[in-house]
Amino acid sequence: MITGKELREKYIRNQPTAFCPGCGDGMVLNSMSRAVESLGILRKDIVAVSGIGCAAWVVSPYWRVDTLHTTHGRAIPHAIGVKVGNKDLNVVVVSGDGDCVGIGGNHLIHACRNNIDLTVIMINNGLYAMTGGQVAPTTEYGERTITTPYGNPSHGMDVTKIVKAAGASHVSRWTTYHMRELTKEVKYALRKKGLSFIEVLTQCPTRTGKKDRLSGLDMLQWYKENTSKTPEEGKITVGRFVDIDRPELADEIYGQITASGGTPR
């Protein structure tokens, strides 16, 4: 077994990271690295793509693989270009909730519809952390943020339901409290053909925590107490919600090239 120190040295650049103390983003990074390590996938065969936000920093600059750090909300379509460009690469997208379903929501839906072979990890901290804690599409009704000082007049949405409806072949949700399960899920996602979507409820002590005076640890405790692996009234369900097989876009495109008499360049 690789030690924590060895893992960090092998997979993470620019240490220490610039995440705030107690931030959950580093935990997701850790989990992704462990998954790759235990699958034995070579780092050179992974391309990690991100947009803009704290979550995006998980891959760029920190993850030590080929990285493409794109514009806000556009990680997924860039990743599609990479995957269709070279389908031998394992393409991982890490995206904040704002990035993934706010500005980038349309791309997410269509990537699920295409069922392109990407692993999309959505780090959900319930708001726009990097820009100062504004309301996001995931912020609950009534929550106060810097742009909803009187309470969120809108509603948060369950992204796992959207990606399920859109056709992703693998959908799940975990939290940073569930590190072991998360790592297993990332491993599964990396091997699963088609679009894998993992939502990770992740603590942001700096933005979410501040208003409620919660530390990172308090928030992990909260995840522990308020989640359940089986549906339960008043709790957030975690686990794997979808696991199906459907034709995948890159395979289809390559298949059509071959069928038309071409050889992929």
Binding site: V49, L68, T70, T71, R74, I76, P77, H78, A79, I80, G81, V82, K83, V84, G85, N86, L89, N106, H107, I109, H110, L249, I253, Y254, Q256, I257, S260, G261, G262, T263, P264, R265
Partner: peptide, 26 residues
């Protein structure tokens, strides 16, 4: 496709521009 090239219709032009950028890096 007959020449070995990939063709893909995207959901919009934002995504189209993104996809060709990603592909160029392969």
């Amino acid at each position: 496709p007959k020449t070995g090239g990939r063709f893909i219709q995207m959901e919009d032009e934002i995504a189209s521009m993104a996809a060709i950028t990603g592909a160029s890096w392969t």
